[in-house]
Amino acid sequence: MIAVLGLGVGIVLGLLLQPTVPPELQPYLPIAVVAALDAVFGGLRAVLDGIFDDRVFVVSFLSNVVVAALIVYLGDQLGVGSQLSTGVVVVLGIRIFSNAAAIRRHIFRA
């Protein structure tokens, strides 16, 4: 409940403040957002599985974001930034899909 509220509050804040992304963060924000989405879907699935744990959610959320950003940063330094971020997005996308599939099975029983 509070998580949904928080999401809404964040969206409203973003719309109201209209911040610009600092240039040094620009390559990492999209990947971080995708990683966070992955964590949120994983958390939702955990809720439905009945094994949701606040601590696990927070740690996985933060670690997802940090690791994703780190991989992109590493890729940028190695000169394969765009390929590596594509790879990260693909992996995270697959995870999001599988989590979404699990959630769907729980809710629609199909």
């Binding site: 409940m1 509070i2 998580a3 949904v4 509220l5 928080g6 999401l7 809404g8 509050v9 964040g10 969206i11 804040l13 973003g14 719309l15 209209q18 911040p19 610009t20 992304v21 620009q26 924000l29 999209p30 971080a32 957002v33 966070a36 989405l37 949120v40 958390g43 744990d53 606040d54 601590r55 959610f57 927070v58 959320f61 933060l62």
Partner: peptide, 25 residues
């Protein structure tokens, strides 16, 4: 209202914020 829920809410707020920012960007 426990600490974990609040923290998760905060993280979700951050996620929503980042989403919108990235959309605009």
């Amino acid at each position: 209202l426990n600490r974990g829920q609040l923290l998760a809410g905060l993280l979700c707020a951050v996620l929503g914020f980042a989403l919108v920012v990235q959309f605009r960007q």
